[in-house]
């Protein structure tokens, strides 16, 4: 009797484990990483992963199905871009229009440091040599 009860409890505890919304955790992990790079079109300032809007749920369902069909991440992104345009991508693709966006930061950083270096050297040459190292904190 005790054994039976234990078995019953064991079964019960098995049954009571919450399931993930996804049937397949691998699919879900890919959906997650993909949808974090995509913009929800209804609320527009959330990622597809975070949004609870109905369209976002439909699109997540669509992506799950596409993953199940064996499409690659790139193919799925292209599938959505074909329907909604580059607007859905939170990480804009690198092309001629976005060259400045992607290269700008590096260019600005290089220019910034070059200008600083040149300015410091030049003013150091111009000014009379007057310093002894100060003990200021």
């Amino acid at each position: 009797m005790k054994r039976l009860l234990a078995l019953f409890l064991l079964l019960l505890s098995l049954a009571l484990n919450a399931e993930s919304i996804a049937s397949d955790p691998l699919v879900e992990a890919r959906l997650k990483s993909l949808s974090q790079e995509l913009r929800c079109l209804v609320c527009q300032n959330q990622t597809l992963a975070d949004s609870t809007a109905p369209l976002a749920e439909d699109l997540r369902r669509e992506i799950r199905e596409l993953i199940a069909k064996g499409m690659t991440d790139e193919e799925i992104t292209n599938y959505l871009v074909a329907r909604y345009g580059d607007f859905v991508r939170y990480r804009p693709p690198f092309k001629s229009q976005t060259a400045l966006l992607w290269l700008g930061p590096t260019v600005m950083l290089i220019i910034g440091f070059v200008v600083l270096w040149v300015t410091l050297r030049r003013r150091n040459k111009t000014l009379p040599n007057d310093y002894e190292v100060a003990d200021e904190i």
Binding site: E62, R83, Y84
Partner: peptide, 13 residues
């Protein structure tokens, strides 16, 4: 009902 045609047409609102 499932919004699939909508997705194909890029409907968002």
């Amino acid at each position: 009902v499932e919004g699939r045609v909508g997705i194909d047409y890029g409907v968002y609102g």
